[in-house]
């Protein structure tokens, strides 16, 4: 992943945590990183210059990261409407992740961060782009990450095809076969 010359905006109320994230991004090869402490700062930065990626805390004062994301996504004619947003959350409950997803965040990362987790999330955003969905109630990246069949076998979208998922009957391999595979590997055979 090449982050050189990309403008990344970190929006976190904590100066020290921002500094930590900034240092990680520097390590990844990024050379243009901006920091803001509140949502007003984000709006100022977005209007003042082009931002390529927003890394935003979910509890960002004054409005909160989720509301901020919704505001960015919902404003028609906004050139930053499709900007990739990586949301940092302090509690990784399913409900919080769902809220971030429904607000329009591209990806969620749980705090505390590690360099590896941050790198992987950024790689995911860069190399696995998702289509954007524009409806009356939602604007943002497609919230479906993977399709494992639909309720009743029929999807809700026009493009959804009928999926036929085979019934699970029994394990593909018998336990004896699995054991023999492991013993072969242990004894150094292929």
């Amino acid at each position: 992943m090449n982050l050189r010359d990309l403008v990344i905006l970190i929006a976190d109320p904590s100066s020290y945590l921002s500094m930590l994230i900034h240092s990680m991004l520097r390590g990844f090869g990024s050379n243009k990183v901006l920091q803001v402490r509140n949502s007003m700062g984000v709006f100022h930065a977005l209007t003042a210059q082009r931002i390529d990626l927003l890394i935003c805390d979910a509890l960002l004062p004054v409005h909160g990261g989720l509301q901020l994301t919704q505001a960015i996504r919902s404003k028609k004619g906004n050139e930053h409407r499709t900007i990739p947003i990586l949301m940092m959350i302090s509690d990784s409950r399913a409900s919080t992740v769902k809220q971030a997803r429904d607000a329009g965040a591209n990806m969620v990362i749980a705090k505390p961060l590690s360099a590896a987790s941050l790198y992987d999330r950024l790689t995911w955003i860069a190399f696995n782009p998702r289509k954007f969905v524009d409806t009356a109630t939602y604007f943002g990246p497609d919230r479906r990450f993977k399709i494992e069949g639909y309720a009743g076998g029929v999807g809700r979208r026009k493009g959804d095809k009928v999926t036929e998922v085979a019934q699970k009957i029994s394990p593909a391999l018998a336990q004896d076969d699995i054991d023999s595979l492991f013993t072969a590997v242990r004894s150094g055979q292929d």
Partner: peptide
């Protein structure tokens, strides 16, 4: 009214 479209952002282009 539902619109599904691809977006290739500058971040994605440049990072690749």
């Amino acid at each position: 009214d539902v619109r599904v479209f691809s977006v290739d952002t500058r971040f994605q282009k440049m990072a690749r």
